[in-house]
């Protein structure tokens, strides 16, 4: 398959700076007893400095695997088959494990969906933050002064994520915190070294709505204060609508649509995005009927080159049998659908 050059998102500000992270034609596969599952097949996307990029998709869309690949966290029986992951011009796929470890946590940090299992239950919260600081913060002085400084920064991080009386709670264990607080702690650990890029994998899926709102606002607030980029991986288009500048919609291991959030939501170009939007009950208009997408996500084994949404698409045509690349679909937008070009011409 060919690598598609995605149109650069244009903004009112004019030319964008170079992306912080640029993924090109990424392919990640997993070996299973049924065959090789191509979880990510040819994903390309960019994350620009200071932006919040939403990555939306259902289970099996490859959204989490894409960023596990970026972090070098794909474990056997999975592997990155092909593609480039450019972080500020360096290809992460060519780095050694040691170089990657040095980058992880310091430049790029990731928070996991399930904070309870992602945190080490045997270590206090403070120890876990200090661990990251010791591993990455080069500016810490040696000896006792360094330890005191690291501790001070750990308290500062807990304070930053809104944990009351942070100095005391540093000595507590993860199970002593509520779900929302644990998610905050994971964000604190991720932010300990002030990364340029925070990848938040379903940060609020396990949380109640009122707590979800708190955590998302916290991420937005810290992004503004530290000037970092955030990738928000989620299945919830509502969360994207509220918090993300741009959105990447993924389906069955591919990017199917990308563009500025507002534009994509108000005028989706890909039938999958349209279907997704139609299947969500909207508080603003409950008389509006919800229309589910029929069928199931295809299994990602031995897929033919046809459009992956073909089995569920209400607008399918015989031409969909041939493979489709991303096509430009308006300013800063692209979609993987053969109808896109026609629509623009019409």
């Amino acid at each position: 398959m060919t690598t598609t050059t995605l149109p650069r998102p244009d903004t009112a500000a004019g030319d964008r700076p170079e992306p912080v992270l640029s993924v090109r034609d990424l392919r990640t596969a997993f070996k299973t007893s049924h065959g090789i599952v191509r979880a990510v097949s040819g994903v390309s996307l960019d994350v620009y400095p200071g932006e919040c990029l939403g990555v939306v998709g259902e289970s099996g869309s490859g959204k989490s695997v894409t960023f596990a690949s970026v972090m070098g966290l794909v474990k056997k029986p999975g592997w990155v088959e092909d593609g480039e992951i450019l972080y500020r011009g360096r290809d992460l796929t060519r780095l050694s494990d040691r170089e990657l470890r040095a980058l992880r946590g310091k430049d790029i940090a990731m928070t996991m969906q399930d904070a309870l299992t992602a945190l080490n239950p045997a270590l206090t919260v403070g120890e876990q933050i200090l661990e990251v600081l010791r591993a990455h913060a080069d500016d810490l002085p040696r000896g006792r002064a360094g330890r005191a400084e690291a501790r001070r920064r750990a308290v500062e991080m807990l304070d930053l994520v809104g944990i009351p009386s942070p100095a005391d709670r540093l000595n507590e264990y993860p199970h002593q915190f509520s779900g929302g607080m644990r998610q905050r702690i994971m964000i604190a650990i991720a932010l300990a070294c002030r990364p340029r890029l925070l990848i938040a994998d379903e940060p609020t899926t396990a949380l109640d709505v009122t707590i979800q709102a708190q955590v998302l606002e916290l991420i937005a607030d810290i992004r503004a204060r530290l000037g970092m980029s955030v990738v928000l991986i989620t299945h919830d288009l509502g969360v994207v609508a509220e918090h993300c500048d741009r959105v990447v919609v993924m389906y069955a291991g591919q990017v199917v649509e990308t563009g500025p959030t507002r534009a994509v939501i108000s005028d989706p170009k890909h039938p999958y995005t349209q279907g997704l939007l139609d299947s969500i009950p909207r508080l603003s208009d409950l008389s509006h009927p919800i229309r589910p997408i029929q069928g199931q996500v295809p299994e990602l084994i031995d897929l033919p080159p046809e459009c992956r949404f073909i089995g569920r698409c209400p607008k399918r045509t015989p031409d969909c049998r041939t493979g489709i690349d991303m096509r430009p679909a308006g300013p800063g937008r692209a979609a993987r659908c053969i109808l896109v070009g026609e629509e623009t011409e019409a």
Binding site: H34, Q294, G295, Q296, V297, P298, E299, I310, G311, R312, R316, P318, C320, R321
Partner: peptide, 16 residues
């Protein structure tokens, strides 16, 4: 050639 089988919830088994 033309018609793409419409897969309803039941028609396409996700499993095997």
């Amino acid at each position: 050639t033309t018609a793409v089988p419409a897969s309803s919830a039941g028609a396409s088994s996700a499993a095997s």
